[in-house]
């Protein structure tokens, strides 16, 4: 129990002291996961709308692949992206390996199927005749999509939360393509693993508390937006 008590005391100390290194790690975590979530929202919602609203041969296979992607192990995403970005790899010339950009790409790869899958479910859960009603109101194609997104906004916010939750807490991909470089690619999860490995449980617990708090705060804000809506 001493370890936990010491850990929480240390966490409080680091938070209250606004430790520059911890602050930097926290901000980078938010930046990387926030950017990855933003990418996944743009790509995932667009792809989910197209897949959910269209009829095409092989649709079930595509939906199955997306659903499988929702459970994509971060280390697999990290491995795949590492090979692509490796100095001698197909995208090695970009020089992105061990940069925050690579971490955004890896986390985006993890979050996009989650957002896409939930979006497909959300769109398919809307009344089938609603699209006809929107068209009957005289909406253009763009207006139709926007109105459908608005109608599905509650599950879509859940998709954003699931996407963000999936990437802020992942470690495998971040450590593989980011490298946990101090002051450059070290985020809350990679730092926690490192400190645990060193036996610095108090710092590791402190970082975990911060990670949980950040996740809780972001999800609380998104939940506030979501629950502002009254149930139908």
């Amino acid at each position: 129990m001493d370890l936990f008590e010491e850990g929480f005391a240390k966490a409080l100390q680091l938070l209250l002291a606004l430790d520059p290194e911890v602050l930097g790690i926290t901000l980078l975590s938010l930046e990387v996961s926030g950017a990855a979530t933003a990418v996944s929202v743009v790509v995932g919602i667009s792809a989910g709308m197209v897949i959910g609203l269209s009829q095409f041969p092989g649709k079930r296979l595509v939906v199955s692949l997306v659903n499988t992607g929702m459970g994509l192990p971060p280390v697999v995403a990290g491995l795949f992206l590492s090979i692509l970005l490796w100095r001698s790899g197909p995208l090695g010339f970009l020089g992105l390996l061990y940069t925050p950009t690579a971490m955004v790409l890896a986390q985006g790869l993890i979050a996009t199927p989650i957002v896409t899958g939930i979006t497909i479910g959300a769109v398919q859960g809307l009344p089938p005749a609603l699209r006809l009603q929107i068209q009957a109101l005289g909406a253009t194609r763009t207006q139709q999509l926007w109105l459908l997104v608005k109608e599905a906004r509650l599950p879509l916010l859940a998709a954003v939360m699931a996407g963000f939750g999936g990437v802020i807490s992942e470690i495998g991909a971040s450590i593989m393509v980011g490298g946990n470089i101090r002051g450059s690619t070290r985020v809350l999860t990679t730092a926690t693993v490192m400190e645990t490995g060193r036996g610095n449980f108090d710092v590791a617990i402190a970082l975990s508390v911060i990670l949980l708090s950040v996740t809780l705060l972001v999800n609380y804000l998104l939940t506030l937006v979501q629950q502002r809506e009254r149930p139908r």
């Binding site: 009344p127 005749a129 609603l130 006809l132 009603q133 068209q135 009957a136 109101l137 005289g138 909406a139 207006q143 109105l147 608005k150 109608e151 906004r153 509650l154 809506e229 139908r232």
Partner: peptide, 30 residues
């Protein structure tokens, strides 16, 4: 063509919004 007409379905198919916003939706589209 659709903007010269209006259609009411068997189900009300209202938007997740207020009564005012629902009634205004066709005007906002235009």
């Amino acid at each position: 063509h659709r903007r010269r007409m209006a259609m009411v379905f068997q189900e009300p198919l209202l938007f997740r919004a207020t009564v005012y916003e629902n009634v205004a939706s066709g005007l906002r589209i235009r």
